Amino acid sequence: MTGATGFTGGHLARTLRARGYAVRALVRDGASPAARALERDGIELAQGDLTDAAAIDRAVAGRSHVFHIGAVYRSANHPDSYYDAVNRGAVAHVLDAGRRHGVARIVHCSTCGVHGDVAEIPATEETAFNPSDVYQRSKLAGEMLARAAIEAGAPVSIVRPTGIYGPGDLRFLKLFRTVENRTFRMFGSGEIAYHMSYIDDLVQGFVLCAEHPAAVGETFLIGSDRYTTLNGLVREVAAVLDVPPPRGRLPVAPLMAAATLCEVACRPFGIDPPLHRRRVSFFTKARAFSVDKAKRLIGYEPQVPLAEGLRRTAAWYRAEGHLRPAPAGVAA
Rank of each mutant, 00 (worst) to 15 (best):
P305V: 08
L145S: 03
P213M: 08
V330T: 12
T284P: 06
P305W: 14
I56A: 11
G166A: 04
L50E: 00
C109I: 13
D242T: 05
P155S: 02
P251F: 14
F187H: 15
S197P: 00
Y165I: 05
D96Q: 15
Y82Q: 08
S290T: 10
K293Q: 10
D80F: 15
Y83D: 04
D96K: 13
R147S: 00
R182I: 02
A315D: 06
A128E: 09
G3L: 03
E301H: 10
E301R: 13
E44T: 13
S157F: 03
T229K: 02
R267H: 13
V23Y: 10
Y317E: 05
I56V: 11
R99P: 00
R324C: 00
G190L: 02
T162C: 12
L261W: 15
A71E: 11
E218Y: 14
V291Q: 06
V264K: 13
T284D: 01
P273Y: 03
R58A: 05
G30N: 02
R28A: 03
S32V: 02
N181D: 11
P79D: 09
Q47K: 11
V280P: 08
R100T: 07
T124I: 03
H93G: 11
S138T: 05
A215Y: 12
P302D: 08
L310S: 04
D41T: 05
F67V: 06
G321V: 09
L175M: 11
Y82F: 14
D84W: 10
A61G: 05
A319K: 03
T313E: 07
C109P: 01
R312N: 06
A18Y: 00
L170G: 07
A4W: 01
E120T: 12
L275K: 09
A22F: 11
R36G: 08
R287W: 05
Y135L: 09
N130W: 01
R58I: 01
A193Q: 09
A148I: 01
R296E: 14
E44L: 10
C112G: 12
V94I: 15
E39A: 11
E125Y: 10
N181T: 05
V234W: 00
A141G: 01
P327E: 01
V240C: 08
L250M: 12
A307T: 07
R312E: 12
Q303E: 05
A214V: 05
A259G: 10
H68T: 06
I222V: 13
R324I: 01
A22T: 15
Q136I: 07
N130H: 14
P268K: 00
P246Y: 04
R58D: 11
Y165G: 14
A90H: 10
L16D: 11
C109T: 12
A85M: 03
Y194A: 03
Y135W: 02
R177V: 15
E191D: 14
C262I: 04
V103Y: 05
M196S: 09
V23W: 09
V27G: 08
P167M: 08
R58E: 12
E218A: 09
A53C: 07
L140V: 03
K295T: 08
E218M: 07
A54I: 13
R185P: 15
S224Q: 14
E191S: 11
T51D: 02
R99I: 00
T219H: 04
R171L: 15
A37G: 01
P131R: 00
D242G: 04
P325W: 02
A85E: 08
F289P: 01
A315P: 00
R19G: 11
